[in-house]
Simulated assay, not measured.
Amino acid sequence: MSRNRRSDRLVIWVCSLAVLAGSAALLGWFAVGAVDHVTADDRPATITDVSGPGTRAPTGNNRDGRTISFRLEDGSEHAAATESRWFWWPDEGDTIHVHETSAGDWTVSEDFSWLRTLGFSAVLLLPWIFALLKAWEWVERTARPERWEAKQREERDRRRLARKGRQR
């Protein structure tokens, strides 16, 4: 920290608020995607053609999408672009579920991953949990200063005794 500790605290607060705002925005984006997926009017379809890169390389870059052509139950033919995923390799003749997002624009429901959505959401909740713990600590410190000081003193004594025990 620099000598001007007041500005350091301001920078920490601004950065913390930026991280919380960013994680809230991404959580909202994931929530909208999950709600769109759950409320979609899915229709069964049969895959007629899979084109595009279908590599299973462990490069971590799964943005190399595919175009899946499919036939609905009414016999109409359509196509939709999908992202390649690790454990989903569509093949001709497979049944998938699709929904129409706008006129002529189709989305494949199997492209949605609950595991990815829940995992990223859990990661994005970590800054909020940390912020809640810090807020709880601040409330505890300001509401009961005597108890706070006693806990801090006990912790320092415990660490000091542990350090002395290790040195012998």
Rank of each mutant, 00 (worst) to 15 (best):
S102F: 07
D36H: 05
R43D: 01
A135I: 07
F130E: 07
R144S: 15
S121L: 00
F70R: 00
H99R: 10
R63L: 11
R66K: 14
D111H: 02
N62M: 13
R158Y: 13
L27C: 11
S2T: 10
R116E: 08
A34P: 00
A143I: 08
N4G: 00
V19A: 12
S23L: 03
D111E: 13
T59G: 09
R168Q: 14
W88M: 07
L17Y: 06
G104Q: 09
A18D: 01
E140G: 09
R147H: 13
T142H: 09
F30D: 00
S69F: 04
D91Q: 14
R163F: 14
T67S: 06
R66T: 01
L27T: 08
R156I: 14
T142L: 13
R3A: 03
H37V: 01
S84N: 14
G52F: 05
L17N: 12
T39D: 12
E100Q: 11
T48W: 05
G75A: 15
A135N: 05
T107N: 05
A21S: 13
S113T: 08
P53C: 00
D94W: 04
E100N: 05
V14M: 12
P53Y: 07
K151F: 11
W88P: 01
R6A: 03
A135P: 01
L115S: 13
Q167K: 15
A31F: 13
A24T: 15
R153K: 10
A25Q: 09
T46Q: 14
S51F: 05
K164M: 13
R144A: 14
A57T: 12
T117A: 10
S113V: 04
R116G: 01
W136P: 00
D42P: 05
R3C: 00
V98L: 04
L161K: 09
G54H: 11
T95D: 10
A21Q: 06
A57L: 15
T95F: 08
L132V: 15
V139C: 13
L132Q: 06
W88R: 09
R43K: 11
E77W: 02
D41V: 12
E110N: 08
T48E: 10
G52N: 08
T95I: 11
P90G: 08
G93R: 07
A34Y: 03
E149W: 08
V123R: 01
M1P: 09
S16L: 14
D94Y: 05
D157H: 11
P90T: 07
A40L: 05
T101N: 06
L17A: 15
S76L: 13
E154I: 07
D111R: 02
T101Y: 07
W29E: 07
D64W: 06
E146V: 14
D105E: 14
L10V: 02
P145F: 08
V108Q: 01
L132N: 06
K164G: 02
S2K: 10
L161R: 12
T107F: 09
A40Q: 04
A24P: 03
G28L: 08
M1F: 09
L72V: 07
R163N: 09
N4S: 07
L115D: 12
D94M: 12
R160N: 11
A24G: 10
T39I: 07
N61A: 12
A122Y: 06
L27Q: 03
G60P: 04
E137T: 14
A21M: 11
R166W: 10
F120V: 05
L27A: 10
S109N: 09
L72Q: 08
